[in-house]
Amino acid sequence: MALYESTPGGTYKSIAADLGINRATLREWVLRDRERRGVTTATAKPAARPREAASSADPDERVRQLEARVAELEASERKLATERDILRKAAKYFAGETNW
């Protein structure tokens, strides 16, 4: 949810594809999260704003933003690690297949 909200120009389709999940599932998660936070659809995904504006929010909101960012980065790290492992396995496979 935080990834979708924090990605300027990101669509449900593109973010869902990056995460390897169904577009409708991501949309449902985002809508539930917005409902939980009491965010209206008119203010749900504003254009990218400078980092300085985010720092002027109240401390609890800033903590929530930072926690969401940490979760986003951890998810990205897991995805990159998985991709790296797949590439390593593919490289080993293809290195064994070549008979020079």
Rank of each mutant, 00 (worst) to 15 (best):
A42V: 10
A95C: 02
R27M: 12
R27T: 01
A53D: 10
A81P: 01
A53K: 04
A57S: 13
P46G: 14
G20F: 10
E77K: 07
V70K: 10
S76Q: 07
A68R: 00
L87F: 15
A91M: 08
G10N: 12
S6F: 07
R51L: 12
W29G: 00
A57C: 11
V39G: 00
K79W: 03
L26T: 08
L80A: 15
D18H: 10
T82E: 09
R49D: 02
A57F: 12
V63N: 01
R51N: 02
E67N: 02
P59S: 11
S6K: 09
A95I: 00
S55K: 14
L31W: 00
E97S: 15
A48H: 11
A44T: 01
P59R: 07
R37C: 08
L19W: 04
E67C: 04
T11P: 08
T41R: 11
Q65W: 08
V39Q: 05
V63E: 02
V63R: 13
E72M: 13
L80P: 08
P59T: 10
R64T: 01
V39D: 02
R49W: 06
V39T: 03
A75Y: 05
A91F: 04
T40C: 03
W100G: 14
S56K: 14
I21Q: 00
I15A: 01
A44M: 06
T11C: 06
E5M: 15
G9T: 00
P59D: 06
G9N: 04
V39W: 13
A90F: 02
K79D: 09
L19R: 11
L66E: 14
E35C: 04
P50F: 03
T7F: 04
A95F: 07
M1F: 11
R84P: 00
M1H: 13
G20M: 09
R27L: 07
L19V: 06
A71H: 08
G10T: 07
A81S: 08
S56N: 00
R37I: 01
L31E: 05
R78Y: 11
D18V: 01
R64D: 09
E72G: 06
T40K: 08
A17E: 14
R69G: 03
R69F: 09
R84H: 07
E77M: 12
R64N: 01
A54M: 07
D60G: 10
R49Y: 07
E74D: 13
R27I: 00
R32I: 03
R27S: 12
Y93H: 13
P8Y: 14
E52G: 00
G38C: 02
P59A: 14
T7P: 05
L87Q: 14
E74W: 03
A95L: 07
T98Y: 00
D33I: 07
R78E: 09
L3E: 03
V39F: 13
E83F: 01
N22K: 15
A75C: 04
S76R: 06
I86N: 12
Y93I: 12
E61R: 15
E35N: 06
P59N: 02
A47G: 15
G20K: 12
A91E: 08
T41Q: 12
E97L: 15
L87W: 07
T43W: 04
N99V: 14
A91T: 09
R27F: 01
K92V: 11
